[in-house]
């Protein structure tokens, strides 16, 4: 089997804080990481590689040159090769343009059986690039995959998570699956693997390498545009109750009753 994993390098948004005085983002010291859902996608690919001999796993990403660090991490986890789509022309891409670029990169990689991607990236939370890449490649997609049950001759059976349960879906291959954290526990790298990963070349392609005109990528090919961005206004601080615990509890209940909230 030939498996392609789509991955993104993201800032660890959990470590971002807001400057309480200026109301701006404090980004200093926030590390860049492999997007968590993408790590689950890669882990799923690596498990399939272990189960089906002859399987290769290629990781592809679109991003700035620094994203090679994240791709080395993917190689160290066990991916066979890594490709970075990187060019100034890709900048400012929305999900629509990102999926066009990824699909072009994947086409250049040739025939594939399965594409695994994370459900969503923690810096954008859109969950759109996976299914949109599938649409552009003309293959079916299943999102929110929590379990891969079985691979048949021309299809794969998976569990798709829903808010109130899950569905068992059989989908024709080749296809795109997007992974959620319930799918697996991503493995750690070993020292030996990290050393190996640094001996491998990471392929870097720009728009010419994947046959895209500059007008087909990045900001130029993005139907959506950010009109403005702002830090959400904090809700005004309320009242701190004082006294002993029973006094505070009684005061709270009284205030709620006064407001007819109870």
């Amino acid at each position: 089997m030939k498996i392609i994993v789509c991955a993104k390098q993201v800032p660890n948004t959990n470590e971002v804080k807001i400057d309480p005085v200026k109301g701006t983002l404090i980004r200093d010291g926030v590390p860049s990481i492999l997007n968590p859902d993408d790590a689950n996608a890669l882990e799923a690919a690596l498990q399939l590689k272990e189960r089906y001999p002859g399987t290769t796993v290629t990781v592809i990403s679109m991003g700035p040159p620094q994203a090679t660090y994240m791709l080395r991490e993917c190689l160290a986890m066990g991916a066979d090769e890594a490709v970075l789509l990187s060019s100034r022309a890709f900048g400012g891409a929305d999900t629509c343009a990102t999926s066009t670029t990824l699909a072009a990169g994947i086409r250049k990689l040739g025939k594939f059986d399965l594409i695994l991607a994370g459900r969503q990236a923690i810096d954008g939370d859109t969950a759109q690039v996976g299914p949109q890449t599938a649409q552009r490649l003309g293959v079916p997609s299943v999102t929110y995959v929590q379990k891969i049950r079985e691979i048949k001759k021309n299809s794969i059976v998976v569990e798709r998570n829903l808010e109130d349960g899950y569905e068992v879906i059989e989908v024709k291959m080749p296809c795109v699956l997007t992974a959620i954290k319930e799918l697996n526990e991503p493995r750690y790298m070993t020292i030996a693997q990290i050393e190996e990963a640094y001996k491998k070349e990471i392929t870097i392609w720009n728009e010419n390498d994947i046959n895209l005109a500059p007008s087909d990528c990045g900001l130029n090919a993005s139907p959506t545009q950010v009109f403005r961005s702002f830090t959400p206004p904090p809700k005004g601080k309320g009242e701190m109750l004082t006294g002993t615990v029973p006094e505070m509890a009684a005061a709270l209940i009284q205030k709620l009753r006064e407001k007819h909230a109870l």
Binding site: Q128, V129, Q132, Y144
Partner: peptide
């Protein structure tokens, strides 16, 4: 923006050649 809406929306947007704003 349910699991179903977030599955359908992206596919429709690509088909229509338009943008989609999530969540």
């Amino acid at each position: 923006a349910t699991h179903i809406g977030r599955d359908l929306g992206p596919c429709l947007a690509v088909q229509c050649g338009t943008g989609l704003t999530a969540d």
